[in-house]
Design a protein around this nucleic acid. Structure first.
Lengths: 166, 166
DNA sequence: CACAATTCAATTGCGCACAACTAAATGGCG
DNA sequence: CGCCATTTAGTTGTGCGCAATTGAATTGTG
């Protein structure tokens, strides 16, 4: 995208160059993430879902009814994000929320009939998304592996930074 | 991360499997993006910046004073996002906003002395981020290339979808 | 010059992400 | 049993991202 080339053997990049925007992987990642959001917004409009709502539905379709806590573990989201989101899904008639009888602290999220039925219409989504990327299945899989590796490293680093590194 | 393997030659993945969360590259991308956010949050706290504010400062440090429009082009952000963000940066004394004398529609964003000085302290940030990823410079560069490729494809697809494809 | 179309920033409204806090229920320990 | 730490959702507040709208300035056209 920029005119410069960065030969693989360059290890002496000046400090100031690190600040160059086009060197910032985070920027690329952020841009890609938002570009994905744009494609999803268009494709999911039919289903009446936002992208985070779609992710919640994916988890429910795959794992069945779950308490909010488990849902959050699958998605790396806390109740601060999930509570209002689930209320909106409930308002749309896709899920019900019921306090567990065994443990009244816990709230079970159940798919309604409409919520379960929506899965059929959602089946086409991933293929359209995959097509939009222009990547084949191997490339997707390889990129995914890389990103998961990155996430693991970053989470570990965040914990290390938080507990008092330089 | 899951127990299944996806050999490269498999082109007959059942439709339902596409819905599997761990197949969703978007989820990995989103997770990585948020994991980055977590690391940046910690590292940028010293500088008193959020991550998007840091990106704005990066652009200003690299390109000098710019109108809001140009800033938005560099960052793929519109005035709806930038206007309040720039007000906060102005409140923090890092930038000034002044209507252009040539074109009164335009607002020029200028670095203040404090804003320019902050660059020195920011120089350490990218190295710490790079270290947190656990990737070497070649891996970072390769991933970046991939992601930019992805973003380009997705933007094109979003435009195509928006103008009436299936 | 007058008027319509365009450009640019700001605002409004909605939803998500996350930190900090609250409140209720549970479980453990003396 | 009585008390306290923990677990779990929910709420509040801040900031970002984006669509839609507004309003002012500019440009193009007759």
């Amino acid at each position: 995208m920029a005119g410069k080339s960065y030969p693989g053997t360059m290890t002496t990049t000046p400090t100031a160059d690190w600040l160059r925007l086009d060197q910032q992987i985070c920027f690329s990642l952020n841009a890609a993430s938002r570009a994905f959001g744009g494609v999803y917004r268009v494709i999911l409009k039919d289903l009446g879902l936002t992208y985070p709502q779609y992710l919640v539905m994916l988890v429910l379709w795959e794992h069945g009814d779950l308490p909010v806590k488990k849902l959050g573990e699958h998605l790396r989201l806390d109740s601060g994000t999930l509570s209002p989101l689930l209320k909106r899904l409930e308002g749309a008639g896709l899920v019900r929320r019921e306090r567990s009888t065994h443990d009244e602290r816990s709230v079970e999220v159940h798919l309604t009939e409409d919520g379960a039925a929506l899965r059929e219409r959602a089946l086409q989504v991933p293929r359209r998304i995959a097509a939009a990327t222009g990547f084949d299945i191997d490339e997707i899989h390889e990129l995914r592996t890389r990103l998961d590796q990155l996430t693991t490293a970053l989470d570990a680093a965040a914990r290390a930074e938080a507990s008092g590194a330089s």
